[in-house]
Amino acid sequence: MNYLLLIAAMVAVTFLPRYLPFYLASKLQLPRSVEQALNYVPIAVLTIIVVQTSLFREGQLAMSLDNPYIGASIVAFVVALWQKRLFVTILAGLVSYAVLRYWLLG
């Protein structure tokens, strides 16, 4: 396989979609409806990454108490609702994960 050609092609298809919107940023005026929709991007994409990582274990849907990701995610969710500091949410999520995992394995 021609590695150089492959890497160059991969750079093109990963960099251009990231750069094109930035390049055009000052040239195009986004319609109001598009700007409105863009506010939903982080909510939509990050929520999907969260559920697809925490609800599935080894490619299978694992919506049971054996899956410590779910308990830890719920704790992180509640803590994030209660206060806004990212660090506190992460700490609460990780501690509850460790406790759940230890408890489930023990």
Binding site: Y40, P42, I43, A44, V45, L46, T47, I48, I49, V50, V51, T53, S54, P68, Y69, A72, S73, A76, F77, V79, A80, L81, K84, L86, T89, I90, A92, G93, L94, Y97
Partner: peptide
């Protein structure tokens, strides 16, 4: 798990009006 709880901590403060919750629920 660190990535999961970090993303939760980032998304939740963005849920300000009912339509944001609708978006998150449909996404999930």
């Amino acid at each position: 798990i660190a990535m999961v709880v970090a993303f939760i901590g980032i998304v939740v403060p963005h849920l300000k009006i009912p339509s944001h919750w609708v978006c998150a629920l449909v996404a999930a």
